[in-house]
Amino acid sequence: MNWSETELETETEANAAPVATPPATKANGALFLGDTGTLPAEARRALCQLLAGPSVDAQRQPTQWAALLRHEDAVRSLLSELFLELVLDRDGGIAFTRQADTAEVDSPTLLRSAPLTFIESVLLLFLRQQLAEADTRGERAVVEELQLVEAMSIYQKNVSTDQAGYGKRVSAAIAKMRENQLLSKLRGSEDRYEISPALKLLFSAEDVQVLADAYRQLRDGGAVEAIEAVSDDADE
């Protein structure tokens, strides 16, 4: 089913605060008392969004996205000062930061990371596959909550015999995807979500293949612990 652009307005877009008018810049270029920065206000807002995470999205944050493109080199330079790297997909309209590969240089880790639970990794794989299929059709990726629950149900026998408890864990995984803005509820709907294109950059095609092979083994009688180990590797 194809959804119109009007129908596909997400809760993020609907609840977005109006863009404030930038304050007048002082004569010396400073934006506030004691300001020694060199970036204009719009670039600083884009940089703050990147650091706050999880991403800058051209559809949901058009102002920050445009500013990021205009000041890409300066933003990359500042992120490098923090041992961070800018990942930017112009075609997909998405950007985020990740730890730079500093090789043997001892560098602090500023970005938080956490291993995926089994259910979270299964859900991410399913969302990544749905995103790929939508891309081939030239559409925005939309899923229904019932569709997610049914996709997770085939793994219940490998995790728990408690159907109610398993359902709660699936609901918690969906809530986590929303919290991290990988799923955005569509306005006017209680059970339809758009999948963030950021997932294409977070999970490469190689990651998807590794996980898909592992889940296939699980359905044939493999151990959950092995899947969680693969998920940990993908998260890193």
Rank of each mutant, 00 (worst) to 15 (best):
residue 125 L to Y: 07
residue 125 L to Q: 10
residue 126 F to W: 14
residue 126 F to K: 11
residue 127 L to P: 04
residue 127 L to S: 04
residue 127 L to H: 02
residue 128 R to W: 05
residue 128 R to G: 08
residue 128 R to D: 05
residue 128 R to K: 12
residue 129 Q to D: 13
residue 129 Q to P: 01
residue 129 Q to N: 13
residue 129 Q to W: 01
residue 130 Q to G: 10
residue 130 Q to D: 09
residue 130 Q to M: 12
residue 130 Q to Y: 02
residue 130 Q to R: 15
residue 130 Q to I: 01
residue 130 Q to W: 06
residue 130 Q to H: 11
residue 131 L to V: 02
residue 131 L to S: 09
residue 131 L to D: 04
residue 132 A to S: 11
residue 132 A to Q: 10
residue 132 A to W: 02
residue 132 A to K: 03
residue 132 A to Y: 01
residue 132 A to L: 11
residue 133 E to Y: 01
residue 133 E to N: 04
residue 133 E to Q: 12
residue 133 E to R: 12
residue 133 E to F: 02
residue 134 A to L: 05
residue 134 A to I: 02
residue 134 A to W: 04
residue 134 A to E: 01
residue 134 A to R: 05
residue 134 A to N: 06
residue 135 D to Q: 14
residue 135 D to E: 14
residue 135 D to V: 07
residue 135 D to I: 03
residue 135 D to C: 05
residue 136 T to G: 12
residue 136 T to Q: 15
residue 136 T to L: 15
residue 137 R to L: 15
residue 137 R to H: 14
residue 138 G to C: 07
residue 138 G to Y: 04
residue 138 G to A: 05
residue 138 G to L: 05
residue 139 E to H: 14
residue 139 E to A: 10
residue 139 E to P: 03
residue 139 E to F: 08
residue 140 R to G: 10
residue 140 R to E: 09
residue 140 R to L: 05
residue 140 R to F: 04
residue 141 A to R: 11
residue 141 A to K: 12
residue 141 A to N: 12
residue 141 A to Q: 12
residue 142 V to C: 11
residue 142 V to H: 03
residue 142 V to R: 10
residue 142 V to E: 03
residue 142 V to F: 06
residue 142 V to A: 13
residue 142 V to I: 15
residue 143 V to R: 07
residue 143 V to I: 11
residue 143 V to N: 05
residue 143 V to F: 08
residue 144 E to F: 00
residue 144 E to S: 11
residue 144 E to P: 04
residue 144 E to H: 09
residue 144 E to T: 08
residue 145 E to G: 07
residue 145 E to A: 13
residue 145 E to Q: 15
residue 146 L to S: 15
residue 146 L to E: 12
residue 147 Q to N: 05
residue 148 L to G: 09
residue 148 L to V: 10
residue 149 V to M: 09
residue 149 V to C: 00
residue 149 V to R: 14
residue 150 E to C: 00
residue 150 E to G: 00
residue 151 A to Y: 04
residue 151 A to G: 02
residue 151 A to W: 04
residue 152 M to Q: 12
residue 152 M to A: 12
residue 152 M to T: 05
residue 153 S to M: 15
residue 153 S to Q: 15
residue 153 S to C: 06
residue 153 S to A: 15
residue 154 I to V: 13
residue 154 I to P: 02
residue 154 I to S: 09
residue 154 I to L: 07
residue 154 I to R: 13
residue 155 Y to T: 06
residue 155 Y to G: 06
residue 155 Y to H: 10
residue 155 Y to V: 08
residue 156 Q to W: 00
residue 156 Q to P: 02
residue 156 Q to D: 00
residue 157 K to M: 11
residue 158 N to A: 15
residue 158 N to P: 00
residue 159 V to I: 13
residue 159 V to S: 11
residue 159 V to Y: 14
residue 159 V to E: 13
residue 160 S to P: 05
residue 160 S to E: 07
residue 160 S to F: 04
residue 161 T to F: 08
residue 162 D to I: 00
residue 162 D to K: 03
residue 163 Q to L: 10
residue 163 Q to M: 08
residue 163 Q to W: 05
residue 164 A to W: 03
residue 164 A to R: 14
residue 164 A to E: 14
residue 165 G to M: 01
residue 165 G to H: 02
residue 165 G to L: 00
